[in-house]
């Protein structure tokens, strides 16, 4: 009887490893390694509740973007304009609140403008038949430009406390942005892994010819995922505006898209699409968050942090492609 129980124990472990997946397991190992390194260097500060919450706040915005970026990459695309959409939507939110005095108006404005920006990306890519990298590189500049034009280059302050609560308030001891990240993650997980529409994105990215021969309306799916990406950038814009208490055309321009794309590839996305998971993206985000925070605590100069981030993106894609070729 005891041996039977042992067997069960082993198979349960196996099952857990299977469920998590080799790839996510290796991300967990990397994350733990980073925690050990930074813990050893600055354990006093690093593991303090305040710092951990700081990391959480830092990754909330990035997490929302990395998750939707994962959806875009799974479909076979890429959206490098998300940082600019975040900047644009902080401005739009602030302007809407200034004009109406209503927090809700600001949120709706951000989501609508984000969705429209995504619609523009999607239509240009699918119906204009222009490469996704080129389109979103172009709109990255365009959306940023619109943000500067709308705001006249000025920061627009937000005084509504109810709105600022989204960025600074807490619920059950956790900051609101972390709750929003959790909600987005759960929603996307269910969508990408459990719904028929979500599964179809894996088919479209995996092989568009097969998808078309299976009766899927590819242009509609493609436009759809860019709209989702834009709306999620709007959510990130709301979080950022609420945290800083202002709409700033410059916000989101400090490599937010770089980090989101890095997290998605770290999380197991394949360059050509058809592969990637929400859980992987979250682990990728956690690694980037810990790395960012740890580098600040250990006083790595900003310029060198940029080197590290760029290297990480290239490394993530290299590893993803290497794994794919080996398989």
């Amino acid at each position: 009887m005891t041996s039977l129980r042992d067997d069960r124990g082993v198979s349960a472990l196996h099952r857990i490893a299977d469920r998590i997946g080799i790839h996510n397991l290796s991300l967990l190992v990397a994350l733990v390694a980073l925690l050990v390194i930074f813990g050893a260097l600055r354990g006093d500060v690093f593991f303090s509740t305040r710092n951990l919450l700081n990391i959480g706040m830092g990754v909330a915005i990035l997490g929302v973007l990395a998750i939707s970026q994962t959806g875009v990459i799974v479909s076979g695309g890429l959206d490098i304009s998300v940082g600019s959409i975040v900047g644009l939507t902080t401005v739009v939110t602030a302007m809407a609140i200034q004009a109406t005095g209503l927090s809700g108006a600001g949120i709706v404005a951000a989501l609508v403008v984000g969705g429209l920006a995504g619609l523009a990306n999607g239509v240009l890519i699918t119906y204009g038949r222009i490469n996704a990298v080129i389109v979103t590189l172009g709109t990255m500049a365009i959306f940023r430009g619109i943000a500067f034009i709308l705001s006249n280059g000025q920061s627009i302050s937000i005084f509504q406390d109810s709105f600022r609560f989204i960025g600074t308030g807490r619920l059950l001891g956790l900051p609101i942005p972390i709750w929003i990240l959790v909600a987005v993650a759960v929603g996307f997980y269910v969508f990408m892994h459990k719904s028929i529409v979500g599964r179809n994105y894996y088919a479209i990215g995996g092989n568009p010819i097969v998808a078309r021969l299976s009766g899927l309306n590819i242009p509609r799916y493609r436009v759809g995922i860019y709209i989702v990406s834009g709306v999620m950038a709007g959510v990130a814009g709301v979080l950022l505006a609420a945290r800083t208490g202002s709409g700033q055309p410059i916000s989101g321009s400090d490599g937010l898209e770089l980090e989101a794309i890095t997290a998605a590839f770290l999380g197991g996305c394949a360059m050509q699409g058809g592969r990637g998971t929400v859980v992987g993206a979250l682990l990728g985000v956690a690694i980037i968050g810990v790395l960012n925070n740890g580098m600040i605590l250990t006083a790595v100069p900003t310029f060198y942090q940029m080197l590290a981030k760029g290297t990480l993106l290239i490394l993530a894609v290299f590893l993803a492609e290497y794994r794919l070729n080996k398989a």
Binding site: R199, Y202, G206, N207, I209
Partner: peptide, 19 residues
């Protein structure tokens, strides 16, 4: 190139046209 999703399982490939 035109019939199978090579990254996916047998089951996922088989149900593609009957959502």
């Amino acid at each position: 190139e035109e019939a199978l999703l090579l990254l996916q399982t047998i089951l996922e490939n088989a149900v593609l046209c009957v959502p």
